[in-house]
Design a protein around this nucleic acid. Structure first.
Length: 271
DNA sequence: ACTGGCTCCTGAGGGC
DNA sequence: TGCCCTCAGGAGCCAG
């Protein structure tokens, strides 16, 4: 399940292997992922090359001179750069072939991912235009969370997973960050002090930052034709630890559903 | 302006 | 062993 650190790791792994190469062909093997593939994608891309690969939230942005390919990994998507002759595996839905004999191959068993095209600046795309700040940027700190939370009665966990508030915090890192900050995931967002939001923002930055660092070791897998990107599993304290002892106080971690999502917290450490 | 619920899809895991 | 059922999850979308 690609969270922001996995998407960033993917970007870092893929970018140096595709930037500057001439695109020679596009292969689409599924009618749609989350949405239909763009029509005439080959006309837009063939003969072009990717000038750079950037990331906004969990969207990967492959920029050409004509426009930008927007790619989302959904929850089961993964990208590899392999020789074009590499046999297809199930759910290999999409290839971009390059001169030189390699291709960028998207696999996505659950097809929650997306491939889109825009000739406008990508930040003006409807899916990107209303997004909140990047969690690892200076624009994101406790003050921002505190301001945005004013009057909101939704659970703080739901609040920090809202991409209009801050992007890239999925279910795992939401639980984990709230655990680190000692905040109960069900607490109403509007009833948390500024000081505690500062702690939460720092916890989010630390958690995501550490995960990206941990992911660095998987970068080489992007050139291994047989390997999977193998999404790294950093040390988690709360997520998926139901009934396990809290690392801080040994109270059993509790699992509850918040906003249709499994959530994990320590009933003693988190208030 | 918010909030909560629904939806897409398939693999994994539990129960029998 | 094998089948069936349930659940998980990112995030857009819609209704209240």
């Amino acid at each position: 399940m690609p969270e922001l650190p996995e998407v960033e790791t993917t970007r870092r792994g893929v970018a140096p292997l595709v930037e500057g190469l001439e695109i020679t062909a596009i292969n689409v093997r599924a009618p749609k992922l989350r949405w239909p593939f763009p029509v005439r994608l080959d006309a837009a891309l063939v003969g072009q090359s990717f000038e750079c690969v950037r990331r906004r939230a969990k969207y990967l942005l492959f920029q050409t001179a004509r426009g930008t390919l927007i790619l989302h990994l959904g929850m089961s998507g993964s990208l590899r750069v392999v020789p074009t002759s590499t046999p297809l595996r199930p759910h290999d839905h999409f290839d971009i072939e390059f001169a030189g004999g390699t291709c960028l191959r998207l696999r996505d068993p659950r097809r929650f991912g997306a491939v889109l095209w825009t000739s406008e600046p990508p930040n003006e795309h409807p899916l990107l235009s209303a997004l909140g700040p990047e969690p690892l940027s200076h624009a994101f700190e406790g003050e921002h969370l505190y301001r945005r939370s004013s009057g909101r009665r939704a659970a703080v966990k739901t609040f920090i997973m809202d991409s209009r508030v801050v992007v890239g915090i999925g279910n795992i890192y939401a639980s984990e960050s709230l655990y680190r900050a000692g905040i109960h995931p069900r607490r109403a967002a509007g009833r948390i002090s500024k000081a505690r939001y500062h702690a939460l923002a720092q916890a989010i930055k630390n958690t995501l930052g550490e995960a990206i660092t941990a992911g660095g070791t998987t970068l080489r897998d992007f050139v291994n034709p047989d390997g999977d990107p193998g999404y790294f599993r950093m040390q988690l304290s709360a997520y998926d630890m139901a009934e396990q002892p809290c690392p801080r106080c040994a109270t059993p971690i509790r699992q509850v559903i918040i906003g249709q999502r499994s959530s994990f917290y320590c009933p003693k450490c988190q208030r």
